[in-house]
């Protein structure tokens, strides 16, 4: 119970800390409102609308590959948990990890360099 109490107190203090900083800023800071101050940073240029600009986002497919790898790593993790209780039944996992390791090494070596667009 004391451990749970400590966690509750600590969480309350952690939540309070940013609010205390914000309150201190309200009390200490002074300034006059100005439209110019609220302009976004544009390297000294006059800011222009988002609609007038476009830029390519490289490596975008890797966001999708991330999802696949995340699912895979969770599956490996859940399988690995089985070893904790029953190490005798680990053969399938050893096999899976062996195949995954070999295929990922092969993929890494054959790719030579990470392509920006797949």
């Amino acid at each position: 119970m004391s451990s749970t109490d400590a966690l509750i107190y600590y969480t309350v203090l952690s939540v309070a800390l940013p609010f205390i900083l914000l309150l201190a800023n309200k009390l200490l800071a002074s300034g006059r409102k100005s439209r110019r101050k609220r302009l976004s940073f544009e390297s000294g240029q006059v800011p222009f609308e988002w609609g007038e600009t476009s830029f390519p986002v490289e490596y975008f497919p890797y966001a999708i590959i991330y999802v696949a790898y995340a699912v895979l790593s969770v599956a490996v993790f859940i399988s690995a948990v089985a070893i904790i209780d029953n190490p005798q039944s680990a053969f399938n996992l050893v096999l899976l990890l062996g195949v995954l390791s070999a295929s990922s090494v092969y993929a890494a070596l054959s790719l030579k360099e990470l392509p920006q667009r797949l």
Binding site: V76, A90, L93
Partner: peptide, 15 residues
Amino acid sequence: PLALINLFIVSLTVY
């Protein structure tokens, strides 16, 4: 790949 190899070695040492 290195993380997977490490995991493979660890699972072998347990199995």
